[in-house]
Amino acid sequence: MNDRLRQGDLRLIEHEVAARLLASKELARMAYVASDGTPRVFPMMFHWNGEEVVMATFGGAAKIAALRARPDVALTIDAPGPPPEVLLIRGPAEVVEVDGIVHEYRLAHHRYFGEEQGEQVVAAVDRPGVTMARIAVRPTWAGVLDFSSRMPGPLRHLES
């Protein structure tokens, strides 16, 4: 089934490893190019809405301008295993500034910390005048590695 899809095929988002990682409490690591032209990787909580990986940052963060200037990003969501499980996503980041708390920021906190503690964390930063940026990545490329049914390129010869 989707264990035979080629890396890059968007149908890999439906792979059982991808579904598990998108529902997990693992952080997404977003790679992007900073305003000074150097690469950055930033770990972030995320919310998967079925079409986009949504992250949030507070207004004024340097990554906002960098993502607007160079929106192409790469994400990894991975669990160490053994065996390790990895979801790789590429796509453009759409950045929208929001007055107040980004809805998906609240949803992510509830998933990561539970309803009560998640709401306490959000309430602590939800103050008059707070601004955030909603960062949504709609996948244009997806890859899955689980080291049992989907091996990285050089190890594919080990697959049956």
Results as ranks from 00 to 15, higher is better:
residue 142 A to S: 12
residue 136 A to C: 03
residue 104 E to P: 07
residue 108 A to I: 09
residue 112 Y to R: 12
residue 115 E to Y: 00
residue 105 Y to K: 13
residue 119 E to A: 11
residue 100 G to V: 03
residue 103 H to I: 15
residue 103 H to W: 04
residue 135 I to L: 01
residue 131 T to V: 10
residue 117 Q to H: 09
residue 105 Y to P: 15
residue 103 H to C: 14
residue 133 A to L: 03
residue 98 V to S: 10
residue 124 A to E: 14
residue 128 P to V: 03
residue 142 A to Y: 01
residue 123 A to E: 10
residue 141 W to G: 15
residue 114 G to R: 01
residue 99 D to C: 06
residue 125 V to A: 09
residue 116 E to Q: 06
residue 107 L to E: 15
residue 100 G to A: 07
residue 103 H to D: 14
residue 129 G to K: 03
residue 135 I to P: 01
residue 134 R to L: 04
residue 108 A to M: 03
residue 138 R to M: 06
residue 116 E to W: 02
residue 119 E to T: 14
residue 115 E to C: 09
residue 135 I to K: 06
residue 137 V to G: 02
residue 108 A to T: 12
residue 121 V to I: 13
residue 143 G to H: 00
residue 132 M to R: 04
residue 119 E to D: 15
residue 125 V to P: 08
residue 125 V to G: 10
residue 118 G to F: 04
residue 130 V to S: 07
residue 143 G to C: 07
residue 125 V to R: 02
residue 125 V to S: 08
residue 133 A to K: 01
residue 124 A to F: 00
residue 112 Y to I: 15
residue 144 V to Y: 03
residue 121 V to H: 07
residue 120 Q to T: 13
residue 141 W to K: 11
residue 101 I to G: 11
residue 109 H to T: 13
residue 137 V to F: 05
residue 118 G to A: 05
residue 119 E to C: 03
residue 116 E to R: 06
residue 114 G to C: 06
residue 126 D to F: 00
residue 141 W to C: 14
residue 108 A to S: 11
residue 142 A to D: 11
residue 137 V to D: 09
residue 136 A to Y: 00
residue 111 R to T: 08
residue 116 E to T: 13
residue 107 L to H: 01
residue 135 I to A: 04
residue 134 R to S: 11
residue 108 A to Q: 07
residue 109 H to C: 13
residue 114 G to S: 11
residue 144 V to H: 02
residue 119 E to K: 03
residue 121 V to Q: 09
residue 141 W to Q: 12
residue 98 V to G: 08
residue 137 V to H: 00
residue 133 A to V: 03
residue 121 V to D: 14
residue 98 V to Q: 07
residue 103 H to R: 12
residue 123 A to F: 04
residue 140 T to C: 02
residue 121 V to S: 08
residue 122 V to R: 05
residue 111 R to H: 01
residue 122 V to K: 03
residue 140 T to A: 10
residue 139 P to H: 05
residue 106 R to M: 07
residue 136 A to S: 13
residue 114 G to T: 07
residue 102 V to N: 06
residue 102 V to P: 04
residue 116 E to G: 09
residue 145 L to I: 07
residue 126 D to N: 14
residue 142 A to F: 06
residue 132 M to C: 14
residue 125 V to K: 08
residue 103 H to P: 12
residue 131 T to A: 06
residue 118 G to E: 11
residue 102 V to W: 00
residue 113 F to R: 15
residue 138 R to V: 09
residue 101 I to E: 12
residue 130 V to P: 05
residue 134 R to A: 09
residue 123 A to T: 12
residue 134 R to Q: 12
residue 145 L to T: 07
residue 145 L to C: 05
residue 136 A to T: 13
residue 141 W to D: 15
residue 125 V to Q: 09
residue 137 V to K: 01
residue 133 A to D: 12
residue 131 T to I: 00
residue 143 G to L: 05
residue 140 T to V: 05
residue 140 T to K: 07
residue 143 G to E: 12
residue 136 A to L: 03
residue 119 E to I: 06
residue 133 A to S: 09
residue 102 V to M: 01
residue 126 D to C: 10
residue 145 L to M: 04
residue 122 V to A: 03
residue 115 E to M: 10
residue 99 D to A: 15
residue 127 R to G: 11
residue 139 P to W: 01
residue 121 V to C: 08
residue 106 R to T: 13
residue 121 V to E: 11
residue 102 V to Y: 03
residue 111 R to I: 06
residue 140 T to S: 10
residue 105 Y to A: 15
residue 125 V to D: 14
residue 132 M to K: 01
residue 127 R to F: 00
residue 119 E to M: 08
